[in-house]
Amino acid sequence: MRGKRLFIATFLVPPLLLYGVFVVSPYAQAFQISATDWGGLSPEYEFIGLDNFRRLFGDGTFWNALRHNALLLALLPVATILLGLFLASMISVGGRRDRAGVQGVRGAAVYRVVYFFPQVLSVAIVGVLWKEMYAPNSGLINGALRAVGLDALARPWLGDPRFAFWCLALVLLWSNVGFYVVLFSAAMQSIPRDIYEAALLDGATRATTLFRVTVPLLWDTIQVAWVYLAILAIDGFAVAQIVTDGGPGYSSDVVGLRLYKTAFTDSQFGYASAIGVALFFLTLSVAAMFLRVTRRDRVEM
């Protein structure tokens, strides 16, 4: 028994130490720094208690960024999951009649590769790609509009405060939906064929089968996807920093980007750490809320 415990400890202690040093320790330091006025470079700083958090509650730029994250939280998971389910249901089977008795799309494997392609690109490439597409003069979007005679619809998309945030949301949707198409498609393959045959005999249409049969059977997968997309919506830093940099005039700012600029542009690491602590508790609260909803759903079923 003692040898078994020693064997387990030998394998567990090193990774736990690494996790503590490189993951837990930075979190703990962020809480400590959030109570100081540290500028990031000087070894001198003063403890100021909760002053950074009091400042946070009165910071209009922070609340503006948080409002944008709230919009992403309300829209991105819903749009991504609905679009992912729709596309997955269209390509779940190719080249033969699908499980609902409807002819599937030929070349479904090719479609899966196309939809999943954004996942193999780095965030930097995705950001630069879409930034070029949104370019007012040489961009693909305005070029396509002018090519079909819709010059009046051409806009400086990233330079107009009315459209910058929605352009950013579209990039986040495009860059993530492919993963969930493949995820939902794989989950659909595990549903017994007999269930679809029974729905077909009852006269169910493809849409009815999707919402009355497929979605309930995939609910656990959908809930996991919802949590991950909610966390992504609360962050959104990398794409926002590359595509719009929060502009113009804070119109596409997000909390993660506000934290970055406060620390590395304004050299206010203490205040930036306070933003990070607030973001940590916000993410934790959202994840806990979704897990709570998941537990209730399972109890009711």
Rank of each mutant, 00 (worst) to 15 (best):
R2Y: 09
I8R: 01
L12M: 03
P15I: 10
L16R: 05
V23L: 08
Y27A: 06
A28M: 04
Q29D: 03
A35V: 08
L41T: 15
G49K: 00
L50W: 14
D51I: 11
R55N: 00
R55W: 00
D59P: 06
G60R: 03
T61E: 07
A65M: 12
A74M: 08
T80Q: 13
I81F: 07
L83G: 01
S89V: 09
G95E: 11
V102L: 11
G104W: 03
G104D: 04
V110T: 15
V114H: 04
V114C: 10
Y115P: 10
F117V: 06
A124E: 08
L129P: 05
M133W: 01
N137F: 13
G139E: 08
L140G: 00
N142G: 12
G143Y: 08
A144P: 03
L150G: 04
L153D: 14
L153P: 04
F163V: 01
F163G: 03
L168W: 14
L170K: 03
V177Y: 05
F184A: 05
L200T: 13
A204S: 07
T205V: 08
T205W: 06
F211R: 05
F211G: 06
A225V: 02
L229H: 01
D235R: 12
A238G: 15
A240G: 10
A240R: 13
I242N: 07
V243W: 09
T244Y: 14
D245H: 15
G247Y: 14
S251F: 13
L257M: 11
R258H: 14
F264Q: 06
D266V: 15
D266T: 12
S267M: 07
A272Q: 05
S273N: 15
A274V: 07
V286Y: 01
A287G: 06
M289I: 11
F290L: 07
T294S: 02
